[in-house]
């Protein structure tokens, strides 16, 4: 539950986004992301929710020709992370991401989790080992892998790989974590594990999650935003959105009449 005293961690203001082919994928999107809460983004395919999510860690910068307009203000810095003077690498060091399909690196389990620390030049092996253990525990994977940290990550099951990717993202103590449909490639049991894990992370860090699964949004999120055709249709408390949506379109979508 969010109330007026909940601090805001980040805030998008009149955000427009254009892909290199000229397509405008986001139209004046404004919404707050509350600190240490889970915010869910829902909407039909192609509505721009993943595009919106990927603005937060400047992922679109990897492909030439993409253009942002507007602001995403991050606190406590009170800085627009889309500004030209901002280094996307610094942003990504504080805003971490978990992808739709588990994408472990061709390395050992240990080195996968240590990756973020290695690229930050953490030389102290003691520190690295401690952080890796902590992250794997945080991702509820420690007990399953503690005896085979030097195995290749590809030998893990899909659900374990996804938790490994969560551990990898946790290892660098991010302030915000972005989840792009983290369970869409997983079976129901693995999905339940990930959801439970996200529940445990609630209150420790700010989470923004894109999901196609309405029940998932209802189960895990504090706030929900419904997007359609690049626009923010409705935003509010998850309870309110799912029980008394203001707009007809939102109600149609969440009740399955459409989408």
């Amino acid at each position: 539950m969010v109330n007026t005293s909940t601090p805001i961690k980040a805030e998008s203001k009149d955000l427009n986004f254009y892909y290199s082919n000229g397509h405008q994928a986001l139209k004046s999107v404004s919404m707050p992301i509350y600190e240490n809460k889970i915010t869910a983004l829902i909407g039909p395919s192609g509505c721009g929710k993943s595009t919106f999510l990927r603005c937060f860690n400047r992922m679109h910068d990897l492909y030439p020709g993409n253009k942002y307009e507007g602001q995403i203000i991050m606190h406590p810095d009170n800085t627009n992370i889309l500004a030209d003077g901002v280094d996307p690498i610094e942003v990504r060091m504080r805003i971490s991401m978990v992808f739709q399909k588990p994408n472990p690196f061709p390395k050992t389990i240990f080195e996968n989790v240590a990756y973020g620390l290695r690229v930050r030049d953490e030389k102290n092996n003691r520190v690295v080992a401690d952080k890796v253990e902590e992250a794997l525990k945080g991702a509820s994977l420690w007990n399953e892998v503690k005896d085979r940290l030097n195995d290749l990550a590809f030998n893990l099951s899909g659900g374990q790989q996804q938790r490994l990717c969560i551990a990898r993202a946790l290892a660098t103590d991010p302030e915000i974590m972005l989840f792009d449909e983290p369970t869409s490639a997983l079976d129901p049991i693995a999905t339940a594990n990930i959801e439970e894990l996200m529940n445990e992370l609630r209150g420790k860090l700010t989470i923004l999650v894109v999901t196609h699964n309405m029940q998932q949004a209802a189960r895990i999120s504090d706030c929900t935003a419904y997007m359609y055709l690049g626009e923010m249709m409705e935003y509010g408390d998850t309870d309110t959105i799912f029980t008394r949506p203001v707009r007809k379109e939102t109600e149609d979508y969440i009740t399955g009449k459409f989408g």
């Binding site: 992922m59 060091m93 992808f99 993202a169």
Partner: peptide, 17 residues
């Protein structure tokens, strides 16, 4: 696959890393 590169960039890695 691009998804593997994205995973690396998302961790704050540089292009060279």
């Amino acid at each position: 696959p691009m998804s593997m590169r994205e995973g690396s960039y998302a961790m704050g890695a540089t292009r060279f890393q």
